[in-house]
Design a protein around this nucleic acid. Sequence first.
DNA 1: GCGACAG
DNA 2: ATCTTGTCGC
Length: 217
Amino acid sequence: MNWPSTPDEAVALQLEMAPLVDPNPPAGWQPRTAAGLDVAYDGDKLCAAVVVVDLTSLETVDQAVVPGVTDFPYVPGLFAFRELPALMSALERLTTSPDVLICDGQGVAHPRRFGLASHLGVVTGLPSIGVAKTPMGRYDPPGPDRGDWTELRDGDDVVGRALRTQKDVKPLFVSIGHRIDLDTACARVLDLAPKYRQPETTRRADQLCRQALVLDR
DNA sequence: GCGACAG
DNA sequence: ATCTTGTCGC
């Protein structure tokens, strides 16, 4: 199927692609770098940014920003269709391929098990993690300490975790995107968030696309 | 029928 | 997402 032009077509594409999500990590996979992705908006204009970070030192090793326009309106459940094109072109401008994508939104914690992180993962073939600030599902509050977590459920399915990345700070909602397991996904998110609620990847991508949006006008 | 609904 | 000041705390 081609790129959808209506919400109905978008839903159909998600239903068609959801079975392509692979919950198994690549054989012997040991990620050294992680890419954070984010988009900032100004009316119908936007900027997408990707920042690649070394998982051990947390230093930025690569980054890219691209301008664009909003094609798709924001519709809950169809968020990916708004940001995916711009994020893909930003990814194409990196000089090296990151080992895992850290996405600002859900992975399989989604009505059709195919949120932004899963969509990006399947399209790129890269392992991906969904890290959302608000849940799409039900959960009980995790304990107050960094690393505490509870299950995020959609009906009877466990689709992710409510993960506390800092003591007494609102939890993040982590779900697998593609080619990764939930334990590993949460461990890497904690690695990337030693000091703040959000992973360093997301924080830097957020900062980069915002400043690019300003300079571009 | 009514409310809820990633960013 | 974005609109928006000061303020409490490490």
